[in-house]
Amino acid sequence: MNNGPLAAGPRDFEMSQQSLEHSQDRRPTRWHIAVFLAPALLVYTAVMILPLFGTLQLSLFRNVDNAQVFAGFDNFRTLFGDPRWSASFWNALGNNTWFFIIHMLVQNPIGVVLAALLSSPKLRFSAFYRTAIFIPTILSFVIVGFAWKLILSPLWGVAPNLLDLVGLKSLFVPWLGKEEYALTTLSLISVWQFVGIPMMLIYAAMLSIPDEVIEAAECDGVTGFSQFWKIQLPLILPSIGIISILTFVGNFNAFDLIYSAQGALAGPNYATDILGTFLYRTFFGFQLQIGDKNMGATIASMMFFIILAGVCLYLFLIQTRLRRYQF
């Protein structure tokens, strides 16, 4: 498997060299192009593209007596047909969708508001705010997961104490331990961590709006909130589109936060199980169930198709309809 791409590499370059000779007859061979491209192409193809297709391929096989046997779509039939598998899968997919919806509804609006405030021209300390608000984004999921787990823990009084300060102590619930709240709580923790990314990207888009446009709006008496709503928001829509698809891809292959806060079992009672943790459990096994490479590959393939569908939807439906303004 390792030799495949290595052997195929040089042949590809010879072919491109031949075609080059036709178009560029005065410089017969330009070996340096191949030299410049080869390392990146080799690593990328061998470690990323081939395993991606390898995983798709594995999902069509099944392990019978320690040998891989072609099984067609049997694994997919098991995933959707077997009540236990399909219940887990739809649970994970549903949770993941909710995870994504919370991000879209909370993370992106907060990001837009923060960016709009930061980009007002005469604001002081804006560099400080930017730097500080971006800090959670650079921390690892492990830190974020455990830090919040400790803060929300009923053993340690941080969250109840804080609520007590505003006289709402009665509202405290061990959120991460309750089935009905755990997933939403984790989604909000993830939002807390990643709000910096939409904020920065939208901030960048807002800075690129030329002053003339804003001044023209002000001449027409469009200021303040209606200026944001009617002038700036339409101009940053392409950025919001990009952020949405980045969020989608990130959410549908999320794993780390759930794993570090709730463990591989995504408790309580699988209430926080998303596709990433489901894949991990299936692939590696847990407690009594032993790991299953082929079913793991099947779930990974489903994730691949979901993400691919989202990306295609974005590229062909959304991006083409969003008008980009060139200044």
């Binding site: 061998a46 395993p51 391929q57």
Partner: peptide, 15 residues
């Protein structure tokens, strides 16, 4: 850029 490398994990581990 769009397709995360994680989805190939099963085959990467094999490799």
């Amino acid at each position: 850029i769009m397709i995360p490398i994680r989805l190939g994990t099963v085959a990467i581990l094999q490799l």
